[in-house]
Design a protein around this nucleic acid. Sequence first.
DNA 1: ACTTGCCGCGCG
DNA 2: AAAGCGCGCGGCAAGT
Length: 864
Amino acid sequence: MGLELKFLPSVGGAKLHPSVLKYGFQYRNACSVCPLKSELGRMEPVGAKRPTIYMLGEAPGREEIKEKAPFVGVSGQLLRLHIPDDVDQSTLRWNNCVRSRPPGNRTPTPVELACCRKSVEDDIEQSKPRAIFGFGNIPLEWAINKTGITQWTGRYMPIKVGAHTCWYLPITHPSYVNRSLEKAYGQKAGDKFRSEIEFAFAMHLKQAFRLVEELGDPVVHGRIEVMQDVKYDLACNNRSVDRIITFIKSMYDEEVVGMDYETNALRPFNSRSKILSVALSGSKETLAWPIKHKKATWSERDLSRIEAAFEDFVVDSECIKAVHSLAFEQEWTAVFYGKRAIRTKRWACTMSQAFILDERQNTNRAGPGPLSLTWLTQQYFGVDIKALNPVNRKDLDNAPLTEVLPYNGVDAKYHRAVYLKQAKRLKSEGLLGTYKEHMRRVPTMVLTQIKGIPINQAVRERLEEKYTRQRKEVERKIAKLSVAKEFFDRKGIELRPSANHDVMFVVDKLLPEEVTEKARDKDEKILNVNEGTLENIKHEFARLILDYRKQAKVLSTYITPMAVGSDVIYEDGLAHPVTQTTRTRTWRTSSDGFNYQNWPKRDDERKEVRGMVKRKGYKVVSVDYAGIQARNVAMESKDAALVKAFRERYDIHADWTERLVGIHARWVDEGAKALAHDKKLFKAYRNRVKNEFVFPSFFGARPETVSHYLGVEESVGKRLQAKFWEMFPDVHKWHDKLFKFYRKHGYVTGLSGFRRRAPISHNEMINSPIQGDESTIVCDAMNRLSEMRKPEFQANMEIHDDLTFIWPEADVNKNLTVVVDTMVNCPFEWAKIVPIGVEASMGDDWHNQKSIGEYFTDTWKGSL
DNA sequence: ACTTGCCGCGCG
DNA sequence: AAAGCGCGCGGCAAGT
């Protein structure tokens, strides 16, 4: 790496921050070896000698050096603008992680940071602030050796700087706010914030000042506190049995017990899957012991005694069992100790707590995020317990027990500790009810995961053969095109239809005149080669690429991964995808490895892949809520016209199709004439109105956008939408109300009580309650069915508005009656404002389903 | 060899 | 021309 270590002195003795240790650097003579030593004007910290808050930035900029004061440039002005008026600024002290200016305002290097560290640490140690506000990623990394400021902002944690313990509050850097303004759009007139990022920044800053007043004294755990009272027993002899069983028995009397398994696999469904060790943690002591770890030398009899005692504990004990990622722990518990153990109400999940307290996370980012135990221990105890213990997590079975067991024990101990911290916060923030509703989902989803999805391999093989053949045919056709030969001549490699890079080259360089205006942006540039672009290219190549993608997508995403021996098909022949409940920012579930929620359905040919979900002698029955999101809009807005529409079965879309023709006949040139007598055509136009006007309007689309969708002039779209709001005024008012609520509280919430926190865009504000309520209704029905504790009412799949079951043919009527009854009788008072409807379809597989009935709350008589 | 980011596209 | 929202996954390119 490019670290210039050669000029760094190597002297031992001083207490070093890990990031400094990493570079083998010592503090002595720091300034004389600093790469920035020749830069002009080293800054001194300014402000209060004994500050309440220490404002820590990244490095001085040009203005700061000129004025000899930190935070006076553009970013500093923005920051000062948002410091609440009631803050006494004479109690602040200002400094940067690097005190000289890196040339061109570049990010300071690790060496530069290391050089300044001692001086900044000393200053904090001497000035003893109650809290440090760190602006941006650099101070965050400086403080806790972790990055990800957009996810850390708005949180807080105890931190130790030198000998001084205080709070650390990460906040985004004001320059990030300034940059966000360039991209911001749709600002409301008279709004004091120029973007939602700016609003979030101001809110987090205000909240930080408030927190400093409210938080108690910070406590940071070091290695000694982490390991304290963590015991383990690896002797595997008679005395171990007594000790472990006595300990397990003592846990019955605890209020809260931390619990943790170490396993050799993520899922318990294969014969090699085993629980390696177990740890329980009570108020006084934590104990970890081996189970099936390679190095465990239990006699069969001794191990079965321990297992029996533990099973009794899991099934019978009244204490709260606190784990991290309950779904994971319950899957293993159910498979190894029985399903009856997981429906007790005394489970707690620190990951779910964290999700309810702050759902913000970047699901695209690899590595531990805000819901990980790593983050939580950092946040609540100022320590990363994973970083303290270097055991190889990926191969615990081959790690020595002297590493596995302490690791296991520390985890269990902190499950308990983090649980207690978060339980307090949930209570004080009024989120216990939301947490409880969330926790109901976990055993339900776990039981669905265990139930699994049957994949018919004969169907799969036929599909694989078919689509492989079709893909090859398209490949051959593409290879024969002259542009493919030209591509080879120009690039020296064969054209790969799967490489968009290659497709772009052909489109851009070889077919420029084939590309219609529509496929270009205002600078005549082709921005992408997606479906929309390729459809507008009048050349065989574009058509063939689209065809190729269809075949390839279906194969690689849906068919090939379902093969026996792949990582989604287990030894039982079933797929066991995970239905995640702590992932989306709207309270929907998501489906993981494989994603059963996005299997083809709309495309007439490719939807046949659903035929793989099939079990001989069984029927696949899907029951979906009809138009649930539009009903959610009615529930949220209580708009009289919309409510009436649902009660009287008035078809909004059909109505507005006719109105649209009235206002703008040109839109339906041929359609206008057909409306009266051509049912199929009318349906097509109704569909357009539904998807391009009615729904987008409910969900916050601007008139410009719906105009574009419909292909009418903006003035027409504007007029049309104005009329639409005349008909549904309270929907429009509800949009506005959401915005006001958000600006007041910093989050939006649905009728179900979940929260989505800043920063969020205007349309996200509207959408989140809709999706949240939708999910609450569907998952509640799924919960109530699951809680009947009969396997037939445990859904195989949940897809946002749909529950799917796989039943023996003879049982369908009996079972479906119960499912429909449960689904239409939604217990939430807020949902009762409109009738809810479900539609059931049935088939021999998931593909060949036919509608078998529609049932509504207000007409349901209790039988099919 | 592995991670990360982007694109493209499947669903509600 | 076009931001209604929410996801997961496969392929490729580029970085380490």
